[in-house]
Each structure stands twice: as C-alpha cells, then as structure tokens.
C-alpha cells in the first residue's frame, strides 16, 4: 500500500521535473530560434515565392509567373558573365589561399625564434575590413597614377606606370582583386593550420625518423598532410563559400564614382549583379531568383568538394 503511493508520488515528481525541464528548454532556445525563423526561414520562403513572381517595384509576391525569373536570368549575358567571373575568381583564389596559408603556417611553425611576431604580422590584416582594404588598394597601393605605391616601385626599375584597375587588357585588375583577398584572409586560415600543426603528436615524427624517413618532403607528404586533413577541409570549404559570395572588394575597387558605373563591367560578380537588379532596378523577383541560383551552385560545389576530400568528420578523418 505504502509502496504504491510512493511510486505514484515519485512518478508525479518525475513528471513535474520533466515538465519543468521542457519549459526551461523552450524558454532558453526561444529567443535564438525565433530570430533564426524570422531572419532565415521566413526570408527563404518569401524569397522563393518572390522568385516565382513578377515583383518589380514591389516586395510582395503574388503575381505568379512560374520560372520566368530563372529562365530570364539564365539567358541574360550579364548574369552568365557574372557566373563566369566568379567561377574564374574562385578557381584561382581557393587554391592560392590554401597553398599560401598552409605554407605560412608550416614556415612559422618551424622557426625557432620569432614565431609570435610573424604570426601577428600575417594575422593582423584580418582586422581590416574589405571596404578599407579596397580603399587602400584603389587609391594608393594599386593607384593608376605614377604616385601610386606599386607604380612608384616599378618606376624605380625604370618601368612605366601601369593602369592596375582601369584597363581590360592586360587584366591587371585580377591581380588587385586577388591580392586584396589574399592579404585579408591568408592570416585567418594560417591560424587554423597552425592550431592543427600543434596537435600533431611529436611521436609520429620520431617514429618516421626511426623508420628512416628523412627527407622533408616525405615526412610532409606522409605525416603532416594526412594529419591536417580536417583543417584542410575546413579551410577549403570556408574559403569556397566566401569566394562565391564575393561582393565588397569588387563593389569598392571596380565600382564607379558619382553617376559613372566605373569599371565594374570588367568583372561583375553575381552578388553585385543581384544587388543592382534588386536594389537599383527594384526587381525583387529576379534578385531573389539570382540568390537561389548562386546558392544552388554553392551547394553543388560543396558537395563535389565533399566527395573529393570528405567533409572532415571524425569518421572520414581516418
């Protein structure tokens, strides 16, 4: 008799405990989840409906036109050009960033003195915004005037000033765009590699030395590189996703001043195209459709990269 009442009350208190945990859980997650619903889920749905609507000068959907926005975009040479532009940019920036930051990490990791100094110097550009870096590149470092820094330096060797940004051929503006992004981000990825390098157990290298693997490259190829797999995947993935969404430096370096459109016609990435279509031409339907096309491409590339290198999970790391 007593035992049954005991279990009953115990069950009740357990129920109450569960209920209070459940309530607390929701109280804790609601602010964040509500925000994600508001600024992620709802825009996704709204954007999808917009992309199927004729939404010129209106932010409301409803005038259903099927896939017209998508087919219009994919037959617009400007948009196709923007896809081509970003494709070339990504194809170039991802491997260079990867190799450069990996090399920096290994070089900084393996010097006996001055590690902290070099790490700080290569890392500090990460503090600078794309807008500020574009400004320095455009108005000073790669300024087309003879008083620009790069032109001054090549002038010391008797070379004539180069229009780094303003000419279509040779396309020096690519050098400018790539340098800016490399300067801003290699330090960041170097940090990820440095952290991974520090976690490689010394015993692995000692074992390799015992086995007679002496040459630097052999050790690198068979010990260092496999141990950096997770960091590599992470760096490539972050880098790829960021590159496809490049906007700031293209807008600020190639963009025009006043009413002129500047040099953006040389290399207009998809996000600048979408920005112009949605914010300047006020065609929100087309802008939204462009966003979905870019996302589709990013997802496709991520999956391909995942196939090639794995997604860096613990299981695949072995």
């Amino acid at each position: 008799m007593t035992s049954t009442t005991q279990t009953a009350s115990k069950g009740k208190s357990l129920d109450r405990k569960r209920l209070s945990a459940e309530l607390s859980f929701w109280a804790f997650v609601t602010p964040a989840i509500a925000g994600l619903v508001l600024f992620m889920a709802i825009p996704m749905v709204w954007g999808f409906l917009l992309s199927l609507s004729r939404a010129q000068n209106t932010i409301h959907f409803g005038h259903f036109i099927g896939l017209r926005n998508y087919t219009d975009l994919l037959s617009d040479p400007d948009f196709l050009n923007s896809l081509w532009t970003i494709f070339v940019f990504t194809l170039f920036i991802v491997p260079t960033t990867f190799l450069f930051s990996l090399w920096l990490a290994i070089a900084v990791h393996n010097i006996p003195r001055g590690k902290a100094f070099f790490r700080t110097v290569f890392f500090i550009p990460t503090a600078v915004s794309y807008a500020a870096a574009s400004l320095i590149a455009r108005m000073s470092f790669f300024s087309g005037q003879s008083n620009g820094f790069a032109n001054h330096i090549i002038g010391l060797f008797g070379l004539a000033p180069i229009q780094w940004i303003g000419t279509a051929s040779p396309p020096w503006y690519w050098l400018v765009l790539v340098s800016v992004r490399l300067w801003l981000q290699v330090g960041f990825y170097m940090i990820i590699f440095l952290a991974a390098l520090q976690q490689i157990p010394r015993s692995l290298y000692e074992a390799a030395a015992l086995d007679g693997a002496s040459g630097g490259f052999t050790v690198f190829r068979y010990i260092t590189l496999p141990q950096l797999r997770a960091a590599t995947v992470s760096v490539l993935l972050l880098n790829l996703i960021a590159a496809f969404q490049a906007f700031d430096e293209f807008y600020n370096i190639l963009g025009g001043s006043g009413s002129s459109s500047g040099n953006i016609g040389l290399a207009r990435p998809p996000l600048v195209y979408i920005y112009n279509v949605a914010l300047s031409s006020q065609d929100f339907g087309r802008g939204a459709a462009g966003g979905f096309i870019i996302t589709f491409i990013i997802v496709a590339f991520t999956l391909v990269q995942g196939r090639l290198f794995g997604f860096g999970s613990a299981k695949e790391g072995r």
């Binding site: 600024f39 954007g47 996302t295």
Partner: peptide, 12 residues
C-alpha cells in the same frame, strides 16, 4: 548562405 537571404530580408 547570405547570398540567398539578403534580398528577401530586405523585403521583410
């Protein structure tokens, strides 16, 4: 990615 949300978030 931000590429897909910025236009509709502006609409919102």
């Amino acid at each position: 990615p931000g590429a897909v949300t910025f236009v509709p978030t502006f609409a919102l």
